[in-house]
Nucleic acid binder design. Structure first.
Lengths: 202, 202
DNA sequence: GTCTATATATTGATAGAC
DNA sequence: GTCTATCAATATATAGAC
């Protein structure tokens, strides 16, 4: 929406602080006061550059979604073999205890409660996960075209399951305060992928 | 901890309201004011029966965890064939848009932020998901003992993946405001389970 | 045990000087 | 564009009568 601000500008400093706080504390717990303390900006600056907390958060989430989409694109363009790219996606070294930068907001009222949500907050999440599923499903389609997938597999379903395994891994790791849950969930996703894969023909 | 209160008692009415609000809005968004409005109790009652909001929430979550553990036990005891029980678990008719009563709290600071969390809030979640994983892993062990599982499968890993698929399904369905994500994630979990299953011997 | 005030801190946002 | 007040509303909790 709004063009990128110059790095180091007050507007960008506010956005960077919001991005950190949204990751660490989520939306509701990200008070304007904390943003100002984090960023060093004065009280008036926030409301000069943004209509309010929600608009700042929405802009911050747009940036996060753009960064993550870019990372997905780089991964899928950088790994020529499509199945290898999906496995690589599962092996991204997330820190499971920190939660997913976008997925962790799925249960905040302002983001995803149909009655009280601000659509501008959910939109970047919606778009990123749709894009991620498309990247994965497209890779699986290419694998199928190369004869590397057993026929008759629902590639969109498989792509959703890959994403769900990672998101569920975050949830379980946070609850147990233990990265092992993420490792196991991802291992299951690898196994599922292997189970629909067939060796390259001669 | 505390013994169950008589149904209809003010204490239990407060607990029931807290359980509803925790599911619908989460912990931080569950203000004492809302609890009192929901329950019809007077202001003083909450602080007479509980030291504060955190203690009420912890007691409410203990009840939720107990209910869900009981439901898991009923399912796994009621379905004699262990693999069928795991498939049945995946087919529990969750409402994906409502989120998981316990899993939805995984990203609240008071529940799972190592710096600020109240251990009493995370404990019931930790215990329920550990118990759930054990139920599933035990069923897979029984299936293996009956020769229904391909050998060499990590049953704990598989159990974690089943739970993660459901939790990830909740996250994705909330983000897209669409139950389809949960259906697809669960379908992937069924497929994984099938891929490690072998037909009963003669 | 329950009720009606009330207290204090924090929230998200504004006012207005510079 | 940035700053220092300041605001009204809400959050969690307490006081004290009944």
């Amino acid at each position: 929406m709004s063009p990128h601000s110059p790095p180091g500008s007050t507007r960008q400093v506010l956005l960077d602080s919001a991005k950190r706080l949204l990751w660490k504390h989520g939306y509701e717990a990200m008070s304007p006061r904390r943003i100002l303390a984090e960023s060093g900006a004065g009280q008036g600056s926030l409301y000069h550059h943004f209509p309010g907390k929600a608009a700042l958060a929405a802009a911050a989430l747009e940036e996060v979604a753009a960064e993550m989409t870019e990372a997905m694109d780089a991964l899928f363009e950088g790994v020529p073999e499509p199945l290898a790219a999906v496995h690589r996606f599962l092996d991204i070294p997330f820190d499971p205890l920190k939660g997913c930068r976008l997925g962790r907001l799925a249960n905040e009222a302002a983001v995803a409660d149909p009655e009280t949500a601000d659509p501008a907050l959910r939109a970047p999440l919606d778009r990123f996960f749709a894009a991620a599923r498309t990247r994965i499903a497209d890779a699986l389609d290419r694998a199928a075209a190369e004869g590397r997938l057993h026929p008759g597999q629902d590639r969109e379903m498989l792509a959703t399951t890959m994403l769900a395994a990672v998101q569920g891994g975050f949830v379980l790791s946070r609850i147990h305060q233990d990265p092992a849950s993420m490792r196991q969930a991802v291992a299951g996703a690898h196994l599922l992928l292997d189970s629909v894969t067939r060796e390259p023909g001669p």
